[in-house]
Every structure is written in C-alpha cells, then in structure tokens.
Design a binder for these strands. Structure first.
Length: 580
RNA sequence: GGUCCCGUGGUGAAGUCAGGAGUUCACGCCGGCCUGUCAAGCCGGAGGUCGCGGGUUCAAAUCCCGUCGGGACCGCCA
C-alpha cells in the first residue's frame, strides 16, 4: 500500500512519486483549493498539499499518493525532520473515517488525566511518546536476548500455572476446574523452575519472564511485570554480576548509544552508612556523616548512650528551611521511626568560626560544636539534620530525609548503576515467632566468613546476595544458592524451621537437589523499570502498553469483571457477599 | 489498612480558602470566509447533573458528612 513511511521522506526523494499511509494530524485549510494536511504514522509526520476540496478530518486514515517536492522558498519548517519537503499533486484515498478523538494525539495529551489516556489507550499509543517508549522497550528486549545468547545462555520457558508456594509475595490463584477446591498460582517469579533447570544440566538459563504479584501497585510496581530472569551453574558471585552487567549495559547502550562505565560496587553496610538505604541514589551527595565519636561524652540526653549518631547536611539550607518545614521534616522522621530529629543551622560565630542556631544548641559543649562543624564540614548557611538511635534506624531515617530533600526525579540526570553486595542473610524478626526472617530467600548462600556466627550472632551474618540499583530504583536482585543439604539445614535452623517443616514446605523443591545439584546462582531484573528510566519516564505505566491503575483496574476493558455464575459454579466456587 | 493531593462542556485550566444566576480563558468540535500554512488566520455557533449521594443555608462548584474514581507515598512487595 505504501512506498515510504511518513517520517522517512527527505530531499533525496524529491521528484519521486510516493505513497504514504497514516492518520490525519493537523489540517490547515485555505479554502477549496488549498489545504495542508499533516499525515502521521509511527515514524513521524509529513506535510501533504491537497488542492481538491476533499473533506478529511482529524484521525481519518488515509493513503496519499503524490510527488515529493522541495518546499517553496521561505516555507521550510526546521522543527520537522521532513520539514524541507512536502508531498504535492496528492491523490487522497480515505481508508477509514474517524470520529474526533477525546484528546489531541500529540504531546498535549501528556497533561490529560491518566485515566482517560488509559480508557482510550489505543489512541494514546498513537502518540510519539508512546511509540518511542514501545520501541525502546522492544530494543531493550532485543539487546538483552542478544546479550544472553552471546554469553551462552539458553532461553527456556517455564509454566504460568504453577503450584502455590508458602512464602513470599501474595499470589494470584487460578481455580482448577477438574479438581474443584484446588488451585494453581500464577508465578511471582520462576524461582523454583530455574533452579531445577540447573539440576537439569541446562547450565545457563535465561527467560524474559512475566511475573505476577498480588501486592499493592506503585509508580514502579504493576501486578504483572517482566523480568530478565537468569541462572548459572558452576559460578561465583563475580560470574553472575559480570553476566548481568553485560546484558544491562548492552541494553542501555542499545537505547542511548553510549555504553555506561563498568558498574561500581558497594557493600550493603557501606550503602546504609553512607546513604541510609539499600538502594542508594548516587546521583547526588548529601551523604550521611558519622557523629558518634563527636558526641561520645555528651551530656545531651537525646544523644547520650545512642548506638549511632549521624547527620546530613543541606548546603545553604538554613534560610530555605523555616520552622514550619523543619517541623514537617521532624514529623516525617518520627513517622519513619525516629525518636526525634535535631536540626542545627550553621551561623557565623563571634570568633569568625561556625556556631549553630538550634533548640538544642545550649546542651552542647564548645568542643562538641567544634567537632560537629568539623565532622559535617559545615559552612555558614548550611542546615544540619541529626538523628541518634540504634545504628539501623539512624541510617534509615537519615536516608529517607536525604531522598526527601535531595533526590531528583528518577529519570533525570546521569545513569548511576550500582551493585549492592553482602546483604545480611537475616533481616528483622517475625512478629509472632521471633525468628529471624530471610533477607533474600531461604536458599541464599551465607557468606563463608560468617558461617561460624550462625548461632552466636545470626543478625550479623552476611550473604552472597546482591541487588542492582539504578538512580535509586531497585532494578533486581539475586544470590548464590545453597546447593548442599548440611548448610541448608543450618540456615533453616537459623530461620526457626525444623526438618519436618522444611520437608513439608520446601521438600518438593529441595529433594531434587539430592540427585546432584550443581553450585549455582542467579539474578533477575525488572525490565519495566530499566526501560522506564532509559525512556526518561518516572512511571512504569508509561512503558507498558496496557497497564493497570493503582487499584488494579483497566479503564479500557473495565477488568476485573464479575465472574459468570455458571463458570464460577463449574469451578466449584461460591462467591461470599462482601461485608463492610 | 493508613497519610496526603486531585475530580468544573470533548481536553486542559481559573473560579472553592472568603457561598450569591454554569461565570471565564485556551485547545478541540460544527458552520462560513480564505491559494503557502505549519499552534494557520478571521467571523459565527453548539456543547456542562461542577464525580456521585446526603446535610447546612433564603441561596452550594464553593461549607460539612459520606461515597466512588485517579495519583504520590507508608504498610505490603521472601
């Protein structure tokens, strides 16, 4: 039907008779004998000069055959890639008329209520921004596939109907018709299957896998999302990190044309100490500073005896933050679990040095003030925020404040990838049993140097688990897995899981290891998140063709919908009336 | 489960704090004029249950209560 794409026409084609197909964008009519029509397809727009009085309206679908010609002197449009030429002597074929769209099919729809964009997603997708995002996504998928294939990985599909597993994210359940009362689950990840592929001798597996989790939605979370899922046999952590790095950097290069620097590494403990979070955003400073020593012998009660005292400095923030805003920051800090927040404004002292304006200044000695100014490297006009508490909450609260105050939108600025390694094996404790909980999952390899601390100090045991972080978003995580039973038993013991319980909960998964599980490890990273950041979006819905809203609905199809009573009955289900 | 923000012709906004006739602006739509525009221009016109329900009031887009929908975040996401 067509010889060229609209956006591809250039002065090279001058004199050629071409056919293009697309949608009518803007029209500029000058009476019966002259009209300019911008014809649009996914490649861009081209101006067609129509000398008939043919009636073409917004979003009509046309096939136009005409001659490419140079635009007359003074009518070149530098804002368009096709702006040097136009199509004249146009023969217009209306392939389909159209009712006017509810919103303009151009950048102005960026401001349209997202619900309306999603209701008419097929129109939204016609826009340049969405076309660009879909193509970036496709390029990332292709680059990742190429990269994995180049590295000797084998693409294997795993089932979508899987057994329900006891722990982890809430699953979507699928009722079985043949066995009423029984359910499949949709996979929250292919974890079980990929590790068994290693037992199966696949050696290097990957899959662009759809994962489903019935958890609340966010800017970076959808019910369904895509992961580059991979697993490798006979490897250590470096092998996995290198393989993942290669595919991520290949994908980034495919989109931006520039290969990022090798990805730096930081330990979990350093990340917490310096940034107060396990997914640090390295694009800006404001690092946490250590103040524990500076207040080692303080009389100030809020600081005395605290396990950790740390601060962050807001450059020039003294004037910017009034009492009102400081109160809000304090509320936020308390909301995050802090006992309180100490703020100090650096002002000029009588001796030319720095002293601090603060409600607590009077409790601090001259030595402490000097130590604080030095440790924070505070200059006149700076705002210092200090938290004193146990080590982890101190870090977390300041990390939250650091992000709150200094963090740019996720897509902005340079791309800062970072590996966070040596995550703790256990994180927190179960509210009911008091047992430690797995940081990553129960099959994660403990750090070999820490194995003897299992019983004496379990919470300090590190693991061979790692996250990949980009601009403060967790792209993904992985670990080296436990492949031999004695170590697995010790980890289960640390988690408070007995042999019987382990057999009951995880037997189906671990018993196959008895037939010879190779040492193995793997990783999975979220493609939606990577694509969103590479596309300059701060919301993964913008890079998903048909996303759901925060309440899990699709305004275009109105799903979820009530189940057909017959179908429900056939599944052996009965709907319980909702009680509020 | 919680905190905060938003909902006004097809679209985007102003109006809401401080109640007084569905008022205004831009885009779009319909009709007319117009042979070099590109956010075309000029003239005219149509189009709204101010998300929904209740309350207060002589009077509600505006105040109060509830509810629905959207968004950001906390919880949750081994």
């Amino acid at each position: 039907m067509r010889t060229h794409l609209c956006g591809d026409l250039r002065p090279d084609q001058i004199g050629d008779t071409v056919s293009v197909c697309g949608w009518v964008g803007r029209r500029r009519e000058h009476g019966e004998h002259l009209a300019f029509v911008d014809l649009r397809d996914h490649s861009g727009i081209v101006q067609c000069v129509i000398n008939d009085d043919i009636d073409v309206r917004s979003e009509y679908v046309l096939r136009i055959t005409g001659v490419v010609r140079e635009r007359p002197e003074g009518t070149i449009n530098d804002n368009l890639p096709t702006g040097q030429i136009e199509i004249g002597d146009c023969e217009v074929e209306i392939l389909r008329t159209a009712t006017p769209p509810p919103f303009p099919i151009d950048a102005r729809a960026d401001d349209v209520d997202e619900n309306i964009r999603l209701q008419y997603r097929y129109l939204d997708l016609r826009r340049e921004r969405m076309q660009k995002n879909l193509r970036i996504r496709s390029a990332v998928n292709a680059a990742v596939r190429n990269s994995m294939a180049d590295q000797g990985f084998v693409e294997v599909e795993t089932p979508m109907l899987v057994p329900s597993t006891p722990e982890g994210a809430r699953e979507f359940l699928v009722p079985s018709r043949k066995e009423p009362g029984s359910f499949y689950a949709l996979p929250q990840s292919p974890q079980l299957f990929k590790q068994l592929l290693m037992v199966g001798g696949v050696d290097r597996y990957y899959q662009i896998a759809r994962c489903l989790r019935d958890e609340d939605l966010r800017a970076d979370r959808q019910y369904e999302f895509m992961q580059l899922d991979m697993e490798m046999s006979f490897v250590d952590q470096d092998d996995v990190l290198e393989a993942v790095s290669a595919s991520v950097l290949d994908a980034a290069e495919a989109v931006t044309g520039e290969r990022p620097d090798p990805i730096e590494r930081i330990t979990w403990r350093d990340a917490m100490n310096r940034f107060g979070i396990d997914k640090p955003d390295l694009r800006f400073g404001m690092e946490l500073r250590e103040l524990t020593d500076a207040f080692a012998s303080t009389e100030f009660k809020a600081f005395a005896g605290a396990e950790a005292i740390k601060g962050i400095k807001v450059d020039g923030g003294a004037d910017e933050y009034g009492r009102n805003q400081l109160d809000k920051l304090t509320d936020k800090a308390k909301g995050a679990g802090a006992k309180g927040l100490v703020w100090m404004k650096a002002v000029a002292g009588d001796d030319g040095g720095v002293r601090f304006d603060s409600p607590v200044a009077k409790f601090l000695s001259d030595d402490e003030v000097a130590g604080l100014a030095a440790a924070m490297d505070a200059a006149v006009g700076d705002l210092v925020l200090i938290v004193a508490d146990d080590w982890e909450p101190t870090c977390e609260v300041l990390g939250m404040l650091r992000n709150e105050i200094g963090r740019p939108p996720v897509h902005q600025g340079p791309y800062r990838y970072v590996w966070v390694v040596e995550f703790p094996l256990f994180v927190g404790r179960d509210k009911e049993t008091g047992n430690p909980k797995s940081g990553h999952h129960p099959f994660t390899m403990p750090h070999p140097d820490d194995v003897d601390k299992f019983e004496s100090d379990p919470m300090s045991v590190r693991s061979i688990a790692y996250d990949l972080v980009l601009n403060g978003w967790e792209l993904g995580s992985g670990s080296i897995r436990i492949h031999e039973p004695e170590l697995q038993r010790r980890v289960f013991a640390g988690l408070g899981i007995s042999d019987e319980e382990a057999e009951r909960k995880f037997g189906f998964f671990l018993n196959p290891f008895e037939y010879g599980a190779p040492p193995h490890g793997g990783f999975a990273f979220g493609l939606d998140r990577l694509v969103a950041i590479l596309a300059g979006e701060d919301n993964i819905r913008e890079v998903i063709a048909y996303p759901k809203t925060q309440s899990g609905q699709d305004p275009m199809t109105n799903s979820p919908t009530a189940g057909d009573p017959k179908a429900v009955e056939e599944l052996g289900l009965r709907i319980i009336p909702r009680v509020d």
